[in-house]
Computed example of a mutant assay.
Amino acid sequence: MSLNGSRAAADGPAVPLSPGDLVAAARAAVAAGAGGVLVHPRTPCGRESLSPRVVGPVLEALRGAAVPGGGAGAEARAGVRVPVSVLAGVAAEPDPAGRVERVRSWTVLPDRAVVRFAEPGARELAEALLERGVAVDAEVPVGGPAEPLARFLAWPVRDRARVRVLAELASADPGPALELLRRLPPVPVLFFGREAAAWPVLRLAARCGTGARTGVGDVLHLPDGRAARSNAELVAAAVAEREAAAPAEARTGGRARS
C-alpha cells in the first residue's frame, strides 16, 4: 500500500502528511487489509529524503505504533507487524553514488526498499540494500521503454529470496503483462497502475495471480469515480475488487499485498 507517494497537501485531505497522520493512516489501511506499507520519507518542509535523520524516525514511528495485521480476525492478529518499505529514488537523492551512501548510513533499516530500475545506478543501489539485509522491490515499467526491464534481467542477483518485482503497468492490456511474467526469473511479482490505470491493473493482477498495490500514492479515486477519503478506503475497495475479479477457484478472501 503506497501510503503517501509523491503527493502533497494540494492533492487533498486523503494524503497523510505529518508523522502522526502517517501512523494513523498506516494502521487503518492495514486493518482494512493492506499487507505492507510503502512510505516516502520527507523532511518537515515536505522534501523527500533518504537521510538517516529522516528515514529512521519515520520507521520508528510506524513500528512503534505496531502497525498490526488487520482484515478478518484483526483482534487475533494484534501486534503482528506488516513489512514497512521506503522508496530509494532520485527525488530524494539525485546522485546515484549519494543514494548508495545514504543507504549505507541508515541507522534504522526498513524491511524493504523500492529501487526504480529506470533510474541510474539501480543495480548498485539494490546490491547495497541487500548487503544491509534490506529486501529489494525492483520497480520496472511495462509497456514503455525496454531498458529498465533489460537492466533488471541482466542483474546477476545472488539473493532472489529477498527480491520482488514491482511492475508498473500503463494499462490493463494482458499482452505486455503476460510477456513480462514469461521473461522474469522465479521471483514474486506485484502489479500496480497509477491514476486511471490503477483499478484496471489491480483487476488484471487478480486474474494473473500476482500481488497488487493501491494507496493514495497511486490513485486518489475509488473504482466508482468518487474521491477516496483515505488509504483505508482504497485498500478496502481493492480487497473487494480483487475478490470479484479473481478466478472462482482463487477466491479465498486474500489480503492486498502492498
Rank of each mutant, 00 (worst) to 15 (best):
A113H: 02
D224Q: 09
A138Y: 00
P185F: 05
T107W: 15
T43G: 15
L62F: 07
L181Y: 00
P223M: 03
T43I: 15
A128S: 11
R112H: 14
A246T: 04
A250N: 10
P185Y: 03
S18C: 09
G215Y: 06
W106S: 13
A28R: 10
L129G: 01
A34C: 02
P148S: 01
L87R: 14
A32L: 08
A28L: 08
A26S: 14
A76F: 12
R102S: 14
A236G: 09
L166Y: 02
A128R: 05
W199F: 01
V136G: 01
S171G: 03
S85R: 05
D159F: 10
G20S: 08
G209T: 09
V100L: 13
A78M: 14
N231Q: 05
S6M: 10
P44L: 09
V165G: 01
A228N: 06
P57S: 11
A161I: 10
L87F: 12
A118Y: 03
V37C: 00
P94R: 07
P94D: 07
E168F: 03
E60Y: 13
G98I: 10
V100W: 11
G36S: 04
A92I: 12
E233P: 08
R53P: 12
G133N: 07
V37F: 01
R203V: 03
A138M: 00
E179M: 01
V37G: 01
E119F: 05
L17P: 15
R112W: 13
L38S: 08
A65S: 08
E233Q: 15
